[in-house]
Amino acid sequence: MAITKKFLKSKPVCKVTFSISAPEATEVVLVGDFNEWDSTTTPLKKLKNGTFKVVVDLETEKSYEYKYILDGEYVNDDEPEALIFNEYANAENSLVAL
């Protein structure tokens, strides 16, 4: 699965690991409503196997829309929990619920 969740017992936070396989990509960035769709704040680190990965702390009891930017192109998660249509973007976004 492209997303893994680790809920913290001490506070209402979940450590969410986002990962996407993109061996040919040189840069992948995570954007979503949790970072105001800012394409500079959440870059993913490329692993030797071609997977890009980042861990983000997110508040629980919420749902978040997100996308990846692969070398400048917006793409949805390969295995999202759900897809949701966003009227503002006039496109579907991936969704993670905590």
Rank of each mutant, 00 (worst) to 15 (best):
I3T: 13
F7G: 02
T51L: 10
D77V: 07
E24M: 06
Y88C: 05
I69A: 03
F85N: 06
L98I: 13
P80H: 05
A97P: 00
I84Y: 13
D57E: 15
N35F: 02
Y68V: 01
V75W: 12
E36T: 07
N35V: 01
V13P: 00
D71C: 01
Y88S: 15
N76M: 10
V13L: 12
N86L: 05
I3A: 03
V55P: 13
A2M: 06
L98A: 12
E87F: 08
D38F: 00
S19H: 06
E36M: 02
G72T: 04
Y74T: 13
K46I: 05
E87D: 14
E81C: 08
S21N: 14
I3Q: 09
A2Y: 08
K46Y: 01
P12I: 00
L47R: 15
V75Y: 11
T26V: 01
Y64K: 10
E81Q: 10
K6S: 08
L70W: 00
N76G: 15
N35P: 04
N86P: 03
M1E: 09
S10L: 02
F7C: 00
Y64Q: 11
E92N: 14
P80A: 09
V54E: 08
K67C: 09
A89M: 12
A22M: 14
F52D: 04
Y74M: 14
I3C: 04
T4Y: 12
P43W: 02
A25L: 04
T41H: 04
Y68L: 05
T17M: 10
V31F: 02
L47Y: 09
K46H: 02
E87M: 05
I20E: 06
V16R: 02
L30F: 05
K45L: 02
Y68W: 04
K48Q: 13
K46A: 05
V55K: 14
N76T: 08
K62R: 15
W37P: 03
D57L: 09
Y68A: 04
D71A: 00
L70S: 05
K62V: 01
K67Q: 15
D78R: 11
K45V: 12
Y66K: 08
Y68K: 00
A82P: 03
N35E: 09
I69T: 10
C14V: 15
L47I: 02
Y64L: 03
E81P: 03
K48R: 12
D77F: 06
T40K: 13
N93M: 13
P80G: 06
E65S: 08
E65C: 13
Y66S: 06
E36V: 11
E61I: 07
S39D: 11
F7K: 15
I69S: 11
I20G: 04
E73W: 04
S10H: 12
L47N: 13
E87C: 04
I3P: 12
Y68I: 08
V75S: 14
K15A: 12
A22D: 10
S21K: 15
Y64V: 06
V56P: 01
T40L: 04
S94I: 07
V29Q: 03
N86S: 09
P43R: 10
F85T: 04
V75H: 11
N35M: 03
D57C: 09
S19V: 05
K48N: 11
K9A: 05
F34S: 11
P80E: 02
V16K: 08
K6R: 14
